[in-house]
Computed example of a mutant assay.
Amino acid sequence: MDWLGFTIVVLCLLVSAFFAASETALTGASRASMLRLSKQGNGDADVVSDLLDMRERLIGALLLGNNIANIGSSAIATAIFTAWFGDVGVLYATGVMTALVVIFAEVLPKTIAINAPDRVALAVARPMRLTMYVLGPLLRIVEVIVRLLMRLFGLAGEHQAILSPTERLRGAVDLLHHEGKFEKQDRD
C-alpha cells in the first residue's frame, strides 16, 4: 500500500506542478506573439489564444485541478504518515507536504514558466484544453456559484479594463524607453 500511496502522491505533485506552470505561462503569454505564431500556422498558438479568450473558465480549471491534486496528495500522505507514526503523523505529513508542494509543485514550475511563458504556454495549451473539456460540467457549477455569490455581495458586473488599449500601449512604450530600449525620438 505504501508504494502505491507514494506513487499517487508523486503523480499528484506532478499534476499540481503542471497546473502551476500552466497558470503562470498562460497568464503571462504574449497575445501578440500568439497572434504572430498563429499567422505562421502554429496550431498551438491558436489554442493558447482560444484559452485566453475563455479566461474565467481557464482560471477555474487551473485552480480546480491544482487544488484537487494538492488536497489529494496531502490526504494520501497523511494516511501514510498516520499509519506509520500514529496521530503525530498528521504533523509530519503537513510539514513534508508543505515543503514538497511549495518547492516542487509551486515555486519551481512557476519559475520555469515565468522565464519562458510563451514556450511553456504553447506546450501546455492542448492538455489544458482537454482538462477544461473534462472538467467542464464541474466548472459550470463552480461558475454559477461564484456568480451568485458575487451578485449577493454586489460585485457582479462586466469586466471593465482600467486602461484603454491606447493607454496600455503608451505605458508599454514609456516602460521600454525607461529601460533604455527606445530612444526619445522613437518613443515620441
Rank of each mutant, 00 (worst) to 15 (best):
M1D: 04
F6D: 05
T7H: 03
T7C: 14
I8K: 00
V9H: 07
A17L: 10
F18Y: 06
F18L: 12
F19Q: 08
S22W: 07
E23H: 03
E23Q: 10
T24P: 05
T24A: 04
T24C: 04
A25E: 01
A25V: 11
A25P: 05
L26W: 13
L26E: 14
G28R: 07
A32H: 14
L37T: 06
S38Y: 07
K39C: 00
K39H: 12
Q40F: 06
Q40P: 05
N42V: 11
V48L: 07
L51G: 13
L51Q: 05
L52K: 15
D53S: 14
D53V: 06
R57T: 14
R57V: 13
I59G: 00
G60P: 08
G65D: 10
A69L: 09
N70W: 08
N70C: 11
S74M: 09
A75R: 10
I76F: 06
T78K: 12
T82M: 06
F85E: 00
D87S: 11
V88E: 10
V88I: 08
G89M: 01
V90W: 03
V90T: 11
L91E: 11
A93T: 02
G95Q: 09
M97H: 06
T98L: 02
A99M: 04
A99L: 14
L100R: 10
I103A: 13
F104T: 00
F104I: 01
A105M: 05
E106I: 03
T111V: 01
I112L: 14
I114M: 15
N115L: 06
P117A: 05
P117G: 07
P117N: 02
V120E: 10
L130C: 14
L130F: 15
T131I: 14
M132L: 09
M132A: 06
Y133V: 15
Y133T: 15
L135K: 14
L135Q: 15
L135F: 15
G136L: 11
P137T: 14
R140Y: 13
I141N: 08
E143A: 15
V146Y: 01
R147K: 15
L148Y: 08
L149P: 00
G154V: 04
G157W: 10
E158N: 03
H159N: 01
I162F: 04
L163N: 12
T166W: 05
R168G: 05
V173F: 02
V173G: 04
L176D: 01
H177E: 11
H177F: 10
H178I: 06
F182I: 05
E183G: 12
E183M: 10
D186V: 00
R187F: 09
